[in-house]
Nucleic acid binder design. Sequence first.
RNA 1: GGGCCCGUAGCUCAGCAUGGAAGAGCACCCGGCUUUUAACCGGGGGGUCGCGGGUUCGAAUCCCGCCGGGCCCGCCA
Length: 555
Amino acid sequence: MGKFLIAPRPVGPIYMGSERRPHFWLDKIARDIIEREERLGRKIDVLRVESGIGASGFPHIGSVGDSLRAYGVKLALEELGYKSELIAYSDDRDGLRKVPAGVPEEYSKYLGMPVSEIPDPWGCHSSYGEHMSSMLIDALEKLGIEFTFISGTEAYKSGLLDEQVSKLLKNNSKVDRIIREEVGSSKPEGWIHYWPRCERCGRIYTTRVLKVIPEEGKVIYACDQEFKGIKGCGYVGEASYLRGDGKLSWKGEFAARWAALGIVFEPHGKDITDSFRVNERIAREVLGYEPPLTVMYEMFLDSTKRKISKSAGNVITPQMWMEFSPPEALRMLMFKRYHGTRSISLQSSPLYINELENNVRKYHNLERIRSERDRITLKRLMEFTYLMEGVPEPWPYRYSAVLNVVSMLPRDIGFEELLRVAADLISKYYGVDPDSLLSDDIFRRYVYYAKNYVENFGSRELGTVEINGKVLEAVNSFIDSLSEDMSDEDIQNLAFETARGKGVPVREFFRALYMILLGQPQGPKLGPLISRVGVNRFKDLYRKSLEEGRVVRKE
RNA sequence: GGGCCCGUAGCUCAGCAUGGAAGAGCACCCGGCUUUUAACCGGGGGGUCGCGGGUUCGAAUCCCGCCGGGCCCGCCA
């Protein structure tokens, strides 16, 4: 199908190579999916894409990337005129493998038990697993992702996977062989890759299937394996695999889900590439289901390119992200590309927001982008970033300005007061109506992000400023002449008078002041800025800059 | 032991699938505009495309080898 989207062109030197059309990666995947499904002759009334939702630990920023990318593919499929659905499948049937930091130590007693059967440490959800997955679901909703939720536990209990589980167990020797061929196995030859839940101790990772009884839909098992130092309880019993008294191991669970739900696309992190490869073969060779198209994405690193991990203390949760920058910035970051190791940090949030603002502006000036490829990439990136609901008109102010202003204001004044003062200053900077800022959701959020940023990371690091000696004298004279009782106007006039009186170009004079205070050559109108910040506070800030050696006299 | 990603301008990165005159943004420099409100405008400098081979009329792009940075997996998912 994809090929027919490209119109035939006349042959000739002018068209050499021009049949290569630039494309955005999500659009390409969507076209590939459709082409593939048609070739396979599957019915394509609803194209289901899937994303797993972890339920074993706290979600981090990478967890939402998987779902976000899958959702992007769903949007792209819909744009091509197909119905599509995102399945968010919670892995709450998985056993607890380790007790994450932040969960009571004594939870080690639950190791090996399905997380949906472990009590919620905080008591607010029906289980540990539900608590964890609900945190991720909450984040997905904040990101504007629509999905159909399926709980793994429910899936097993409802019989959704019965057919596939039966097939896998009946063909367990074939499954075992594939596993051995692809990744090897330390289990004895002929191992049956299914985890029955021990009726007595409730664990699944300490059991071993002794025998499959297909005609009764059950297995005989022994709870005699060791898992993470925990020994099985020794119980021997039988479990129905049709009622879901257990679960498939990873070597087959994806395959079962794909076949049962008819999944055509699922992204995966590189940590489970082996798992994917095995499952692809099992789906194809045992279940007779051609596995979904996939993309592999890299894990996230922090700004110093170190792996994000709980022990390193650099974990970013989606909830933390939302305290510092908007969901659309995160969507943009995730949709930009899917390969290459990504580094991400909350401290860089002003950069991400700046990029978002620039891209929104560029989107409304597309004709200015010369290269067709860049044009298409930017156009689609922004349309996906705004979930196909329309890219907003650029707003007339910058986050960097809001952050600068907020970082200079006293911090103990309360949010509403901070908002008012910031609106006042920003309105003067950009020449917009302060009331419209106060009722503007983006502005309100900007002030919120900026407040959090300053409280967590301090003011933005300002570089050293070199200032011409004569200009510096003028600046000093200006600072000395300031007094508490001056109005906005007085201060503004004083600035001009001082500059002229000292024979310094007005532009240079202002530039110097803004560089010292904000680290950038322009800022909100000076009189009101100093007045809102407070003359004495302003003098302190200036004195500090001098003391810290940030301001260097240049002849 | 197995596998993956990255290396292109000072910085952040596109471009590589399908080989056809090295790109963007930021930064920098020059010029313009303005009693700072620029969310600017015009121009400019700057790259042995990590290194070495190979294929080719032609390689950033394909193949092989190496160097540097980083990541993942080893039965848990």
